[in-house]
């Protein structure tokens, strides 16, 4: 700690009690008592804190009541969830299907974001369809099918898997958006190829074929820890707690410029979902930035 000049962050911590019981508390206190500049900064900050707290209390004293339309949408969403086939909490089991947010949101006036999206969604979807068809062919050719064991993985480094099923890993270098998440589903083709050109089955899971990571681009540094199988496993556990199903693959990419793990899940009803998990996925939850049903 440098004590050559008033350190406002440090003095702020001192004033706010963040240094209580730490060695810095004594050191900063001594400096305030012995240095006029520090004493003045301390006095100024103390006075300013009182004024700021007063402003914030006044701000908080104004009620922020939930608007009726927001409450109506929320009630509808909860009602929809309660009538969904996955509402069986009595047994303590988690839902069998991913959450469906579409219907509840329709009960609210469309947001300006939604209105914006609709204006250009149609041409974008058409473009995506073309890209998707192209990417299916390319990716099916690129993904290696060798076993993880071939790369010298040990038990501790076992590839992430959910329920013993294989999890394809790659770094596509893509910056996904809500509209382009569909591109992540070329995992499904790759997996189908690795499983003999057909959809995944329980038998496939039992065989648990492993597919080596395919890094066409660098893994974003923020996601590097998630390439460790045990960390990725915790992340996928958290994701599948929200989106129950079989994880087909993950893409270490970005979502709207934020580093994110794109997780493709096939649900028991054979629909595909994409979950976008933040870099701290698996650390106290999935930390999903977005999720989307694709079919």
């Amino acid at each position: 700690m440098s004590l050559n000049q008033p350190d406002l962050d440090l003095i702020a911590d001192y004033v706010g009690g963040a240094l209580d019981g730490t060695p810095d508390e004594q050191r900063v206190g001594d400096r305030i008592r012995s240095d006029a500049e520090w004493a003045r900064a301390y006095a100024d900050l103390t006075a300013a804190f009182g004024a700021v707290s007063s402003d914030l209390r006044a701000f908080g004293a104004t009620p922020e009541r939930m608007p009726d339309d927001v409450w109506a949408g929320l009630e509808a969403a909860l009602s929809s969830a309660s009538t969904a086939p996955n509402g069986e909490f009595a047994s303590g089991q988690r839902p069998k299907e991913p959450p469906t947010f579409t219907a509840p949101r329709d009960n609210r006036p469309p947001s300006r974001h939604a209105a914006r999206r609709r204006r250009w969604a149609t041409p974008v979807v058409a473009a995506i369809a073309v890209l998707f068809a192209l990417s299916l062919t390319i990716f099916a050719l690129k993904v290696p099918t060798r076993n993880f064991g071939d790369s010298g993985s040990t038990g501790a480094d076992a590839p992430a898997a959910v329920g013993g099923a294989p999890v394809l890993q790659r770094a596509s270098g893509r910056d996904y958006t809500d509209e382009t998440l569909v591109l992540a589903t070329d995992f499904g083709v790759a997996y189908a190829a690795s499983a003999g050109g057909r959809a995944a089955t329980a038998e496939d899971s039992a065989k648990a074929p492993q597919v080596a990571p395919s890094y066409a681009a660098p893994v974003p540094p923020a996601l590097s820890s998630l390439t460790i199988p045990s960390n990725l496993g915790r992340c996928l556990d958290a994701v599948t707690a929200i989106m129950p199903g079989q994880v087909l693959g993950v893409d270490y990419a970005t979502y709207e410029r934020t580093p994110a793990v794109i997780v493709v899940v096939r649900t028991p009803d054979d629909s595909r979902w994409v979950g976008v998990a933040a870099a701290d996925c698996g650390n106290g939850g999935a930390h999903l930035l977005a999720q989307k049903r694709l079919d």
């Binding site: 209580d20 730490t22 004024a51």
Partner: peptide
């Protein structure tokens, strides 16, 4: 302690932004 630090440093910034400092 982390909460206190975040609050303290936030108040210090607000003090500048709000003209109290």
């Amino acid at each position: 302690g982390t909460v206190k630090s975040r609050c303290s440093r936030g108040r210090a910034r607000l003090a500048v932004l709000l003209g109290h400092l």
